[in-house]
Design a protein around this nucleic acid. Structure first.
Length: 312
DNA sequence: AATACGGGGTG
DNA sequence: CACCCAGTATT
């Protein structure tokens, strides 16, 4: 199957099966697209949609988000995961306002310079928000190309030069064609060429797929195990969940906050809390006595941008 | 090149 | 219950 035929098959399939995602609706701003991409970084699209709707209703423009409180931003982020993305998104909004007059830039280098925007998101914004040429290489596209071109069940841990080159070769040179191809091949990976149970019987390019032709062999190297229970990340997440539920302007004493963590590792709670403070995800307030010598008097809350933080 | 970084849906 | 999800920033 020639490149042209492969593209047409995927584009035709997309025409019939594209999801009606909220940020694909006509009239969605470039900023709205950028927000959707950041939210979807390592978070499944299905969980992003409701959060995106509420978020965009509350903060429709970069200027709106830039003026928001970090605490409100983190609460609205909710359980999407990796809450540092929420802070980066607000910083991104501020950068768009300050550097680009509130307009989401089109230039790749300008996009890459924004907080929380990496190679994937920059390409996605160029393609999906601006309809410009870009090489979108997310986990979906990487998997589709790994199977069709390399005959592998799953792509490696990070994109290789060769992968980028191959992806680039498939993207039409013109803006409009590029934009359509990127979204179509990504959608194919999300709906048909899935990681777990690929639906090859419904795939428009199965006849051109090296992996399918080889009988869908399993990958040689399994991925490294990822422990969750008892991890620092779980501990951080639990602390953030507690602080998100705190009433406005309320604070929680250090002992009360750390007590919510199970005590398998004796110094994990303190370590997790310190890392959250270091990341700017939690604000640390000196105790009422103000001496600062007594760590147990220290109180914690989600960070406020306007209120001056006082180091204990 | 390796790691850290959430949380939940699913096979 | 392991695995994976429209990745990014840091070391």
């Amino acid at each position: 199957m020639r490149t042209e035929e492969l593209r047409d098959a995927v584009l035709t399939w997309f025409g019939h099966h594209a999801r009606d995602l909220a940020w694909r609706r006509p009239g969605t701003s470039a900023w709205g697209v950028l927000v959707s991409e950041v939210m979807a970084q390592q978070t499944p699209v299905a969980r992003v949609e409701p959060a995106w709707r509420e978020w965009m209703e509350r903060w429709p423009t970069p200027a709106d988000l830039a003026a928001a409180e970090d605490a409100d931003v983190l609460r609205a982020w909710g359980r999407l995961g990796y809450p540092r993305r929420a802070l980066r998104l607000r910083a991104c909004a501020a950068a768009v306002v300050e550097r680009h007059g509130g307009v989401v830039p089109v230039d790749e280098a300008d996009l890459l310079a924004l907080p929380g925007v990496g190679a994937y998101t920059a390409a996605a914004v160029r393609a999906f928000a601006h309809g410009r040429h870009a090489v979108v290489l997310d986990t979906n596209v990487r998997r589709v190309l790994a199977r069709i071109l390399a005959g592998l069940a799953l792509p490696g841990p990070a994109p290789t030069r060769e992968e980028v080159r191959a992806a680039h070769a498939l993207v039409p040179a013109d803006d409009a064609g590029s934009a359509r191809w990127n979204v179509a091949v990504m959608e194919l990976g999300a709906l048909v060429c899935t990681a777990r149970a690929p639906r090859c019987e419904a795939c428009p390019v199965a006849s051109a797929c090296r992996w399918y032709a080889a009988g869908r062999p399993a990958n040689a190297a399994p991925r490294r195990p990822q422990a969750w229970t008892g991890s620092d990340r779980q501990a951080r997440g639990r602390l953030m969940a507690v602080l998100r539920e705190l009433p406005d302007d309320a604070r929680l004493g250090r002992a009360d906050l750390l007590a919510v963590l199970p005590g398998t590792d004796v110094d994990q709670p303190a370590r997790a809390l310190a890392s959250l403070v270091a990341d700017g995800l939690v604000a640390e307030h000196a105790g009422v006595d103000g001496t600062g010598a007594d760590a147990d008097g220290t109180e914690y809350a989600l960070p406020s941008r306007r209120r001056q933080e006082v180091a204990p």
